[in-house]
Amino acid sequence: MAVSAARLYRTSIGKKVIMATTGVVLILFVIGHIYGNLHIYEGSTTFNGYAKFLRVVGAPVFANEQLLWIIRAVLLACVVAHITCAVQLTQQSRASRPIRYVKHTDPKATWASRTMRWGGSIILAFIVIHLMNLTFGTLHPSFIEGNAYHNVTALFKLWYVSAFYIVAMLAVGFHLYHGTWSMFQTLGIRNRDNHRLLRGGALVLSVVFVLASTSVPLAVLTGIVK
């Protein structure tokens, strides 16, 4: 089994399987995370409560922040695996067409499908900055440990930060749109019967995500959330 798993990984299809499975985890996280973020509309106490809850969750089985760290570890592992495969696959593709076309047109491919690599890189950059903004607070005008509500609102009041977030959210949205569908194809779940369903689902998911996530910076800018 281990041997065969290794042989699976050696092939590009194996790497794709890893991207897909880690992709699932990442998607689930992002959905949950954005859902959590929407508590911000219920005011600081609820939102901070939620942030606190993230740390004590799992008690009494887990000590303070223990479960959170486990989740963090899993997430980190997934992102690393996901990126590693992405990079390896990208290198393989580059190598397989040494001479490019003088003229090249893409008759069908969706924009999303052709920007997975760019989109991914933007997301990577975003995550790093994002953690420095709101988790470590190293990149923040007035970071207050434990006061997530303040951290977010204070941050988004800076228009250029909000702008950056909105762009990043769009990138994630596109990535999700192709990714979610592509994932099912990679795992061999997609077929001509469920094709429209999956494409539709992917579209809804990414649109809802973009609306929900960008609403936060916009709400702060427009003063709906103070």
């Binding site: 590009s12 299809i13 790497k15 794709k16 696959l89 893409d106 008759p107 069908k108 969706t110 499908s113």
Partner: peptide
């Protein structure tokens, strides 16, 4: 050959 990222062209 390169890998397939389900682009569909």
């Amino acid at each position: 050959f390169g890998n397939c990222t389900n682009i569909g062209e």
